[in-house]
Computed example of a mutant assay.
Amino acid sequence: MISDELKAELLEVGLEAARRAGALLRDGRPADLAVAATKTSPIDVVTEMDIAAEKLITGILAERRPGDGLLGEEGADAPGTSGVRWIVDPLDGTVNYLYGLPSWGVSIAAEYGGESVVGVVAAPMRGETYHAVLGGGAWLGTTRLACRPAAPLDQALLGTGFGYVQTRRAHQAEVAARIIPLVRDIRRGGSAALDLCDVAAGRLDGYYERGLNPWDLAAGDLIAREAGAVTGGRPGEPASGELTLAASPAVFASLQPLLEEFGAWHD
């Protein structure tokens, strides 16, 4: 059982790391921003700023919490000895950032015993920082968040995302084409962490995507759940790379069977 004191300490560290990394990314973005590498395909990029932000975050965590484990998108992976593991996406929405679009963020979660207990998502271009502590609600600054009230599926605004591998994108487009006639509309924001926070804040009724990594969803999943949303994957399964779904309870109950039927969980 994790203590309230430890949760408070982890939140403080996560907020500091996200704030400083967000400021670096916002203020330090070069006009001639370069692509440092590719991830899953030539259009899935890593910028020099992803790498710089993760280095900053890992340095803060090593200084403040030297015994903790770490899993980071840009390669950091250490087991730790304390029972706490940080899961870090230093720049979620890299392509948005590369193009100068504002929908990107820093996502930092802390796990204890394999369960997310703290989540922080900083969105510097929005001037917003979301956070949640397990059992303590979800917050945007000092405002407590709550997902939208129940709505029929045909009145639901959904978010989704698409992978960068061609075969996966093609199937995801087929699934979206089947979903669109059944809902109010679909948005594609480009940052899974922010989409999950938008569910928490009531800006979306639901969000689904296949192909997320632990660092994409660890913080946002906790924030959405603490705001009253239901999160999961395929029926009976938690959110995962196979499928992630977060929505107000009524929308979740209507949408999950459709995603299963439409094969949103496979390529």
Rank of each mutant, 00 (worst) to 15 (best):
S191R: 08
S191D: 10
A192D: 03
A192G: 08
A193G: 11
L194G: 01
D195N: 13
D195P: 05
D195M: 14
D195F: 09
D195G: 09
L196Y: 07
L196N: 01
C197A: 01
D198E: 15
D198V: 13
V199A: 04
V199G: 02
A200I: 03
A200Y: 00
A201M: 08
G202Q: 00
G202P: 01
R203E: 12
R203C: 10
R203W: 08
L204T: 12
L204D: 13
D205H: 15
G206L: 04
G206C: 02
Y207S: 11
Y207D: 07
E209F: 14
R210V: 06
R210M: 12
G211A: 09
G211M: 10
L212V: 15
N213Y: 14
P214L: 09
P214N: 07
P214T: 07
P214Y: 05
W215Y: 14
W215R: 06
W215T: 10
D216S: 15
D216R: 12
D216N: 15
D216I: 05
L217V: 07
L217D: 06
L217H: 11
A219V: 12
A219T: 11
A219N: 07
A219I: 07
A219E: 07
G220I: 15
G220C: 13
D221G: 03
D221V: 07
D221P: 06
D221H: 08
I223W: 01
I223P: 01
I223E: 04
R225S: 09
R225W: 02
R225N: 08
R225A: 12
E226G: 13
A227R: 02
G228V: 09
A229S: 01
A229C: 05
V230R: 06
V230G: 00
V230S: 05
T231V: 08
G232N: 08
G232T: 02
G233C: 03
R234V: 10
R234T: 12
R234D: 12
P235N: 13
G236N: 00
G236W: 00
G236E: 02
